Structure formats: structure tokens, C-alpha cells
Computed example of a mutant assay.
Amino acid sequence: MKLRKILLLLIVVSTVFTACEKDDGVGDVVPLRDAAEVYEEDLIDIETYLETHFYNYEEFQENSPYSLENDEFRIVFDTIAGDNADKTPLKDMVNLKIVPFDGIDYKLYYLNVREGLGKEIHFTDQATLIYEGSSTIDNYVFDSAVNESQFNLLTVGSSSGVVPGFQQALVEFKTSDSFTVDDDGPTSYHNHGIGAVFIPSRLGYFNSTLEGVPNYTPIIFKFNLYKRAILDHDIDGIPSWMEDIDGNGDVYDDDTNGNFTPDFLDNDDDGDGYFTKDELEYSQYTIIVGDPEPIFADNEFESSRQENNGVITIKTVIITDRDDDGVPDYLDIDTIPES
């Protein structure tokens, strides 16, 4: 799947993209151009597209946003012309966020058709969704998944992740809040996020060639976001999103014990000789599908959930601070686990 982006840790740190799965539709790279110059061209391309295209909002508005009918809604873009000359352009409907990347503040436009009523998705999570990727040049579809697919949003070492523009858009949406399993097997998700994102090439594939899409081309992803799985990359009990200590959206620059291993890959975050997982407390809840969600304590966070035959098991981590100094035990070298 071309949505996946395989990057080595060194590449992540230096923010130089290199595609490596040619049989996945990503071809050879070409010589690098100046990123600022390319961005200027991309922004003109994207904003022109937003001014001259609309989506099938009238079909969505036929029903209430969170109706069962809209659970199956799919975004379709078309040109504002002829019979569609009076349609509202995307430019009047999209949201904008600024994404700092490699020294440039990129404008990332995204279309929030429906935010979703489920869980927030973190930039380190795994997402389950359907999607379609296309070019802004001619709407050429270079990738799609009509059946639910899973993607890790964060690239770690040689594991696959997604391009930054897609990651940054998904975190603005929420998952479904419920689902039903049809008699013939398929799962129907309800009240999930539905949207699209318009990605400058530097936040996409930049100088890598996609099949049917020239390099340095802005791209679009439409998506329906169904589920999340909270990831704990070092299996230390702390969800990876919580290891972004400074809250800047980058887990690679958080290294509490200064051992040159980011906290989210370090199983002894404070370097006190005790495993992080032993400096935490844990709890577990069991509910039935459709039951109210459990209420967590202020220092308690969901670490995983599993559903089996209508029974949902939710595991949580409890962040303790036994000496009340404002530093969690697992980050406090002066506090050792209780025996």
C-alpha cells in the first residue's frame, strides 16, 4: 500500500524521505529541489484545487450528521462548472492547521465532514480506516483501500508509518463509538470520523515517484476513520503518546535520562536501574458493547482495549507520584518501586 512510508530512524531524524518498496508503487527518487520553492508551487496548486472543486456535501446533508445513512458516506470531489457552477467551493469548507517541518511552516488544509464521536487518535497510535489517495493534478487515484486497513501513524526504525501530512490530519478526527457485525460477517462502524486532507508534497512523497503521479506533486487522501489501537513501542507500560513529555508532537526528542534513547524506546526512562513498568500501577475494566465507558481517575489512562464476543476489556495504567513532588515515579530517579 502506497500510504505506507518505510523510513529508517536516521532518516526520520534528518527528515529526508526515501521510498524503499518499489513494488508498492513508489519508484526511484529524483534530485532534490529546494523545499521552499516546491512549497510555493504546491500551495498554489492546492489552493487552486480548493477554489475550483466541491464535494458532495448535499448528499451528506440529506441526513443528520451522525445518522446510520451517513456512516456509509463517501466523499466525492467534482469541478465547479456547468450544472455545478453554484456549488460551495472546498476553500470555504476546509480547516487549516500549520505544520512545522524541516524549517518551513506548511499550511495543511483538511476537510472535516464529520469529526467522529469515538476516541481521539494519537500521533503514535495505529489507525484502522478506509481511504483513497489521489493527485491534485487530475484526481488520478494512486492508492485506495475499500476494506478496513491498519496503519501505524509513527515510523519507528524500519517499521512502516504514514506520510506526515496524513498523520497530522488524522489526529484531528475521532474513531467510531460503536459497531455492529452483520449476519454475513462484515463489521459496520457508527459515528466515525470522515474527512480528507490536501497534502503539500514535502509532507507527502516529495521527490519520490508514485505510479501515475509525478514527483513534487501535492496529494489528497480521503478517509473514514474507524478504530485506534494505542501503541507502547517499548512495552514499558506507558503508551507512546504519553512519552511526548514536552508535548511538541515529537517523541524522538524526549530523553529523560540522557542516554540518547528516546523515552518511548527506553524501558527505564529515568535511568534509576528499575524498569519503568515496575514503577507504575495498573487496572482493568470489563464492559459489554453499548455500556457506558468507565470513568478513570485523573492519573489513569487507557493502555489497551480488546473486544471479544461483545465483551470489551479495557486495561489502564496509573501514574503514581508517591513522594508528591510533581514528578511521576517512573521519571523520578529519587523514587524506587515498592517491594
Rank of each mutant, 00 (worst) to 15 (best):
K91L: 11
L96K: 05
I75E: 00
Q126N: 10
D332T: 06
D23H: 08
V76P: 03
N259Q: 09
I98N: 06
D253V: 12
L9M: 11
K87A: 09
Y285F: 15
K97Y: 01
F101S: 08
S158F: 10
V156I: 15
P262A: 09
T88D: 00
R202F: 07
K2W: 01
D321C: 09
Y110E: 06
A85K: 14
S303V: 08
V289W: 08
G103I: 05
D234G: 04
T180E: 11
A145T: 13
I130Q: 07
F17P: 02
S188Q: 12
F73E: 01
T124K: 03
Y49C: 02
D255S: 10
V156A: 05
L68S: 14
I98Y: 04
D78Y: 13
R33P: 04
F166Y: 15
M1Y: 09
I199W: 00
D334W: 07
S303G: 11
A127E: 04
V76C: 03
L32T: 14
N147V: 14
S14W: 04
I288C: 00
F54T: 10
H190Q: 10
Y282W: 00
S159E: 13
T261S: 04
V76D: 07
P294R: 12
T155E: 07
T209L: 08
D138G: 09
A145F: 07
D184E: 12
Y66C: 10
D105E: 14
G204N: 07
Q150C: 00
L7W: 08
D254W: 12
L225P: 10
E40V: 09
Q306Y: 12
L32N: 11
A36H: 08
Y131V: 03
A169S: 14
I194Q: 01
T48Q: 04
E243L: 11
S283K: 06
S67K: 05
G157I: 01
E211R: 13
D334K: 12
Q167E: 13
I220E: 05
L68R: 14
T124G: 07
I230F: 00
I11Y: 12
L7E: 15
D270K: 09
V29Q: 14
L90C: 04
F151Y: 15
V94P: 04
L210Q: 06
A85R: 14
D78K: 12
S283R: 03
P292F: 00
G212S: 09
D270T: 01
Y106V: 08
E41S: 10
N267H: 06
A35K: 12
T18M: 06
G273K: 10
I11R: 14
Y282G: 06
V113W: 01
T335E: 12
H190E: 08
V311F: 02
E72A: 13
V99P: 04
A81P: 03
V29K: 15
H122I: 01
S283E: 03
K174P: 10
Q61G: 01
K119V: 03
G185L: 11
G25V: 03
E279V: 03
D263H: 10
Y109G: 05
K87V: 02
Y106K: 04
E62L: 12
E279D: 14
M1Q: 12
G247A: 06
R228L: 06
Y106L: 03
V317F: 01
D321Y: 09
K22S: 11
P214T: 11
V113L: 02
I44E: 13
R33N: 11
E307A: 09
F151R: 03
L90H: 07
N207W: 04
T187I: 15
G204D: 12
E72K: 13
Y106A: 05
I235Y: 10
K277M: 06
V146Q: 08
K97M: 13
